[in-house]
Design a binder for these strands. Structure first.
Length: 475
RNA sequence: GGGUCUGUGGGGUAGCUUGGUCCAUCCUUCGGGGUUCGGGACUCCGAGACGCCAGUUCAAAUCUGGCCAGACCCA
């Protein structure tokens, strides 16, 4: 087996192979864009779900689950929304041989499934805010080339939907969601930028959309999440109203927050290297793999030591696997490296006798541990690994942005670009054409790099009321 | 949406133009044996595929049609 393709030169080839060798999905399922989750990949996904659940519930949201099928009549109530999704929904038109009176849509997202029910649930201002989320599969008839975790037709989707009393409360919920996402991203050691998407690229039906993007090498970016402020755009057609203190009916202000297994793809894409996947310990299916080194004459001492150590680590909630298969040690090292295991522990016969081990983390740092407080040292090594991974990620992140002052500079961008923009759609499209990508949007909060005050618009040269905007090439 | 092309064991391929020693080949994968074992071992035995359905033919991986799946290019 050779090394993976060069990540910076052939990113997509590298990505596909990294996912393949790690065994996260089986792409042989005979429907385009629908892959099988393997036990290893599913475990990573479940851990990722756990991060989302923990984060969102800490911010006062509760889990619900709505049905998969949506009647066409409900689906069509918000005009922009239908227009945005019409081309990519799967339809259910028959029950057995009987044509359905009202065709059903396989949800591409759940606004139109939830909101008729929200209208029933919400009567009074006392019913607000309503903060609920669900983690379910949604379906989109993707026509472009599909890629595991990144562009798929059956999406494992996290969606929070909230109803708020006021516009300001909804904006506050959006900010709260960004803080929640920050926590999730931190756990994954993924730096990101939040930008307000330009008008022409916001979610169909939204008042505004804040997208969460990751730079993944060159000018490439990966959108891993969105927070939308809907204002009353949905509550009016779906008649979600409450009676306020004065006894008047008011429409609720709504928000949504969406994430998916793209975050898993992003973790692979961002941290991975020539040997394959690199997992942060938060979602690593195995945080520690122990490889006992056995030779013909040494007997079971190394395996016994490995198993005893594994039991002790498990009792401290470490996910650990003892690889006592018949493979040679070298083959095991490569295998577990490609699968992204944060920490490998080697135990040879002599070490077993002495109560020591050799620890090698996924960043290649190697050291001997023990005999004193061995278990603590291993936990410490795991924590150190996560810190080192995050530090490495921050460095890569800093290098992923640069300022461009002229449209011609955009063509050969080797980073995501920060450009000054007048805010008009015409100039926005000029920028998109020049970079052969997209205007991501105006950053929310601090910029990844400090470019000073905005200059004149990179496209039309207008000097007043310009702002910095990020442009890149979304995957 | 329009066009071009592709489909051969688990993965990657040759063969197809001109139908016939092709129970197809190489690299791997899987099962079993032996020698090994601190960075991708060697060796022996064995298993496993011509996308699906029709048609043409003495004979189809190869030709024809339909279907399914996928890739690339353009709008």
């Amino acid at each position: 087996m050779a090394e993976l393709p060069d990540k910076s030169e052939h990113f997509i080839d590298w990505y596909l192979e990294a996912v393949e060798v790690a065994g996260l999905t089986d792409k042989r399922y005979p429907v385009k864009g629908m892959n099988v989750w393997t036990p290893y990949g599913f475990q990573a996904r479940r851990l990722l779900d756990g991060l989302m659940i923990q984060g969102i519930e800490a911010s006062g949201s509760r889990a619900v689950e709505f049905p998969t099928l949506i009647p066409q009549t409900e689906f069509q109530k918000e005009k922009e929304h239908v227009k945005g999704f019409d081309a990519e929904v799967f339809w259910v038109t028959r029950g057995g041989a009987t044509p359905l009176d009202i065709p059903l849509v396989l949800r591409p997202t759940s606004e139109t499934a939830m909101y008729p029910i929200f209208a029933i649930w919400i009567r009074s201002h006392k019913d607000l805010p309503l903060n609920v989320y669900q983690i379910v599969n949604v379906f989109r008839y993707e026509t472009k080339t599909t890629r595991p975790f990144l562009r798929i037709r059956e999406v494992h989707f996290f969606e929070e939907h909230t109803c708020q009393l006021t516009d300001e409360a909804a904006a506050a919920r959006c900010r709260s969601n960004l803080a929640t996402f920050q926590g999730i991203a931190d756990a994954l050691a993924l730096p990101f930028v939040a930008t307000r998407r330009p008008e022409w690229d916001k979610f169909p039906g939204a008042y505004y959309s804040i997208a969460l993007d990751l730079p993944v090498g060159g000018a490439r970016t990966l959108q891993v999440g969105t927070v939308h402020h809907y204002r009353e755009n949905f509550s009016r057609p779906y008649e979600i109203r409450y009676e306020d203190l004065r006894g008047e009916m008011q429409y609720v202000h709504q928000t949504t927050f969406g994430l998916s297994e793209r975050l898993l793809g992003a973790t692979v894409a961002f941290h991975g290297d020539r040997r394959g996947v690199v997992f942060p310990s938060s979602i690593a299916p195995y945080q520690v793999v122990i490889v006992p080194i056995v030779s013909q004459n040494s007997g079971p001492i190394a395996v016994d030591a490995a198993r005893a150590l594994a039991d002790r680590l498990r009792s401290r909630n470490v996910r650990v696997y003892v690889d006592d298969s018949e493979e040679r040690p070298g083959a095991k090292y490569y295998l577990w490296e490609s699968r992204g295991v944060p920490l490998r522990i080697e135990v040879g016969p002599r070490e077993a006798a002495a109560g020591t081990v050799t620890a090698v983390n996924r960043l290649g740092e190697k050291k001997g541990l023990g005999p004193g407080s061995l278990d603590d040292s291993i936990l410490q090594a795991l924590a150190d690994y996560d810190k080192a991974l995050a530090a490495r990620a921050r460095v890569a992140f800093q290098k992923s942005f640069s300022v461009a002052y002229r449209l011609e500079e955009l063509k050969d961008s080797s980073t995501v670009r920060l450009v000054s923009w007048c805010g008009t759609e015409a100039c926005g499209h000029q920028i998109e054409q020049a970079i052969e990508g997209a205007v991501l949007g105006v950053p929310e909060g601090p910029l990844p790099i400090d470019p000073g005050a905005p200059a004149e618009c990179i496209s039309c040269g207008k000097a007043h009321e310009t702002r910095w905007v990020l442009a890149g090439r979304p995957l």
